[in-house]
Structure formats: structure tokens, C-alpha cells
Amino acid sequence: MLERIRIVLVQTYHPGNIGASARAMKTMGLGDLVLVAPRQFPDPEATRLAAGAVDLIEGCRVVDSLGEAVTDCVQVIGASARLRSLPLPCYHAPDAMIEAAWQRLPDGPVAVVFGRERSGLTNDEIGHCTHQLNIPANPDYGVLNLSQAVQIVAYEAFRRATRTAVAETPASRDTIYPTLDQLEHFHTHLHRALDSAGFLTQPHAKTEAHLRALFARAEPSRKELSILRGVLNALERRD
């Protein structure tokens, strides 16, 4: 299951942090690294700090946007030190996050997203996530280096992978979760239906942002999402 856990680094400023994060991943058996618009990569400093994980650096995927990095994922967890005005479901401990993610891995990749060293993830980027992760730390100085945060998540994933020797029971048909791409198609369909019905009349009300947060908390399965889209189709046909 470890091969289905994806680490995504967004606009990393210091190339050395990319190398150190790759080393942290490989130490714990993770190998899926995606970089979103890094400031400077490839770079000798990234290679130097990767040490024995140069293969991860050389084999990582570099994309232009977070959406590109996570479109095939069934869960996208944004590591964030601060909560937004429309908070997504939040894990307040990395072990609890990994335990929940483990139940989804049979359905597809799970991404853990880390933002910029100084400013983290933007609100728009959090909008691509289904959940948030807050790593508890000293309230007087809770600043984790990027690679340290990656190391904590990677360690919890490795610990979960080695805890049980027996094979996991596959998820039942009704509990298969949609990919982010499928969720985006649903939200596009919902927007079209609401706009056609004249419901979206106040552009500053953040109605759609509230609805996104609602469905993120509900965590619909693929079957439930299909039912919701069937409801929207039926309503559209009545117009």
C-alpha cells in the first residue's frame, strides 16, 4: 500500500528541501513524489541532500498545478498549520490521518500535500483538498521544517504498513471512493444545475464553497456520487 501514498510538494523554494524530503520518503518506503512548480529544480543541492534517494529525485514528476498532481487521487490531504474560514475535515494527528487513508488506498492513490516553506498552501490550493492535516507541535514554536513534516507522515505510513502482516480486506463495492477528477465533474454538474435554476444569484455569498465543504465532510462514495448526479440529471430534465 505504501506505493499508493503520494507526497506532493507545492512551489518548494529551497531545492535542498526537495532532496531532504525524498530521503525522508525513501527511508520509510515511499516512492511517489510529485513537485508542483518548484522554484529551482533540478538542482545540485536537491541531489546532494537526497543522499541515497537520488532515484526518487530523478524519477519524480514535475507538474504546473496542484490539480494536475492529484486528479487521480481518492483522497487529498493538505498539511496546514492554520484552519480556513470553511474548514475541511481535519486530522489533528498524523497517525489518525494515515489510519483513515489506509482504508481508501485499495480504491486509488492518496496524496499528502505540503505547501511553501514560508506561506504554506493558498486557499485555492486547499480547495483541491478533501481533508486537512495539522501536525501537533509546541504552541510557542510550532514551526516544522518541510522535510521534517514529510518525515513524520512517512514514518506513520511505514508504521501502519508494518503493523499488520495479514492482507487487508478489500473495500466493499459501496465504500469505493471517487477520485478528485470524479468529484470535480460532480461539482461542475452541480454548478450547471444550480445556475440553470437561478439559485446562484449572489456571487459573494460563497455558496459553492460552502457546498464543497459540505460534500467534503460527507465523503460520498462513488455509488452515492452517481446517485447525486442522477438526481441532478432528473431535475435538469424537468426544466
Rank of each mutant, 00 (worst) to 15 (best):
A79N: 07
N17W: 01
G59V: 14
V36H: 02
P42G: 05
L66T: 02
A46V: 11
P42C: 06
R61F: 02
G19V: 07
D72R: 12
V76P: 02
S85M: 11
L35A: 04
M28L: 04
L56V: 12
D72V: 05
L30E: 10
R82D: 05
V70T: 12
A20E: 10
I77H: 04
L56D: 07
E68T: 09
P42H: 08
R84I: 04
R39V: 03
A46T: 08
T71E: 09
I77M: 08
Q40L: 13
V54I: 15
L66D: 00
Q40C: 11
G78Y: 02
V74K: 14
V62G: 11
S21I: 05
P38M: 10
V63Y: 07
V62C: 15
V76I: 15
K26D: 13
A50R: 02
L49V: 01
K26F: 01
G29P: 13
V63M: 05
S80G: 07
A51Y: 00
R82M: 03
E45V: 15
R39C: 01
M28T: 03
I77D: 02
R82A: 09
A20I: 05
G78A: 15
A51T: 14
L66A: 03
D32Y: 05
D64S: 13
G67W: 06
G19N: 09
V36Q: 01
G59T: 13
L83H: 00
D72C: 06
V62W: 08
I57K: 07
R84K: 15
I18D: 04
R82G: 06
L83T: 01
G29S: 13
L35I: 06
R61W: 00
P44E: 12
V36S: 04
T47A: 14
A46R: 05
L33I: 05
V62M: 12
L83C: 00
G19H: 07
G29K: 07
E58Q: 15
G67R: 10
R82W: 12
L30Y: 09
A20F: 13
G52D: 15
T47R: 14
V54T: 15
G67D: 10
L83Q: 13
A22D: 09
A51N: 03
L83S: 12
D64H: 10
V63T: 12
R23G: 04
V74W: 07
G16H: 03
P44S: 11
R48N: 03
R39K: 15
S85C: 00
T71N: 07
A51D: 11
L86C: 08
A50W: 01
S65C: 02
E68Y: 09
C73Q: 06
P44F: 09
A22L: 06
V62N: 11
A46K: 08
D32V: 08
L49F: 13
R48C: 02
R82P: 03
D43E: 02
V34T: 15
A81E: 05
D72W: 00
C73S: 14
D32H: 13
S65K: 01
L86W: 11
A50H: 03
I77K: 02
V63F: 07
